[in-house]
Design a protein around this nucleic acid. Sequence first.
DNA 1: CGCGATTTGTGCACGCCTTCACAAGCGCCT
DNA 2: AGGCGCTTGTGAAGGCGTGCACAAATCGCG
Lengths: 250, 250
Amino acid sequence: MSQQRHGSTSGNGDRAGAVPAFPDLPEATIARLPEYLRALHNLGEGGADTISSEGLAAAAGVNSAKLRKDLSHLGSYGTRGVGYDVALLIEQIEYVLGLDQRRAVGLVGVGNLGHALAGYDGFASRGFKIVALFDADPAKVGERIHGLVVRHIDELPAVAAEETLAIGVIATPAGAAQAVADELVAAGVTSILNFAPCVLSVPANVDVRKVDLAIELQILSFHEHRKASLTALPGGRSATGAGNQEAVGS
Amino acid sequence: MSQQRHGSTSGNGDRAGAVPAFPDLPEATIARLPEYLRALHNLGEGGADTISSEGLAAAAGVNSAKLRKDLSHLGSYGTRGVGYDVALLIEQIEYVLGLDQRRAVGLVGVGNLGHALAGYDGFASRGFKIVALFDADPAKVGERIHGLVVRHIDELPAVAAEETLAIGVIATPAGAAQAVADELVAAGVTSILNFAPCVLSVPANVDVRKVDLAIELQILSFHEHRKASLTALPGGRSATGAGNQEAVGS
DNA sequence: CGCGATTTGTGCACGCCTTCACAAGCGCCT
DNA sequence: AGGCGCTTGTGAAGGCGTGCACAAATCGCG
């Protein structure tokens, strides 16, 4: 690949300035990078110095050709005949994903789900820190959850002024989500993770990702339905080769 | 479309038998059906009898052409010049997704996240019922959560024998997930929703969907990183037209 | 009864993503 | 030093999904 991203081939050292001019990565690739990163961390802890595309692909649950193409978009960080340097590749992916910078997360809605998210280990362990909790219910304001005090949603602007919130997480009921999103945007948040089952309308420069737990179940329900109808049909073998998938992508 | 799925045009009545022989729907379409369904329910409660593809598309946050193509895969349930009959379309989508049958869900891992999932309204309100909670930690066994008693994971086979579990939800730490998946499969579960950050290996006839909350944050982090590098670049206007996306492939 | 307004259903073209297959490159062993 | 085996990086092909643009169909009104 002729794409030489940031000067030195040493692989690091000049990270500071905003040099990137990103080789605009395919969205599908970006969605897989975190998976590769997790697999690499596991392998690294297992004592591996290098890993082949085949090995890493297996650990990440993807095709090895796809993995190589994905990584090739980042640059040439592998060695032919050997494989990828685990530590170097971790560093590269973390750089591309912007994980070398601590990103502050604000969570709105401390209900059932929000409560769990506030204490979810997976966030902290991967470089995200929830720095503020908000809720509209006065009964919840003041409550202490996993070391953080719940503040009223109206305090959002004040908190955002103090510490820049990189990402806002919405865990409110659907009815309140749009209003919360508007407030987050007004407070300067440009990335939102939405757990509320509704469509959010935001300016073009704001990124929204939606996670709807019930939708996942409904998709599984469809496949159950399909499998059931297959086995009940003539020649209905027990759905061998039904083609299960292993990702969410979206 | 010449696809006449189940005899009567009345819209229901002969649902019982496994007639389907599914017009194998594109996976992308399936993933969007639940979103359409939610939008339809909202519209129905709003008192709408019919809805145009344009209107429904807006409510679901998609392109109207895409919506029409998606729905055309189910059959012709719209009326030209008028739109779609809300009630009929709800019924059709629910049928395709297999939501006309109550599906029992078993949840394994009653930690932070599992606890929240056990009480998540979104499941019950869309036809899913969590019928059993499991955990490996003896300290948690016996605990009562949202009306259900936590049982030890070893009891899974016994419970599955009593009531068929359609879907298994894994909310354990990554280390335990594969073992739990194996036990679920052994108990006859053929659909798994995995919240643990790891790749599961299962037989071909078992469907796995993965939801990794940290991955979503990392994807957002990438876009934050990209946007930041753009604004720091010459001609760096505030990222207008950055192209945000609105779904997760989930 | 016919006409125009409206909306669905879909053929088609385009672009993205995946997958295959292989040349290029690297290290090791003799 | 040379050759051999292994692995990466990538050109090319195929498939899938999206979006446009329009013909077909339906309703309501004059």
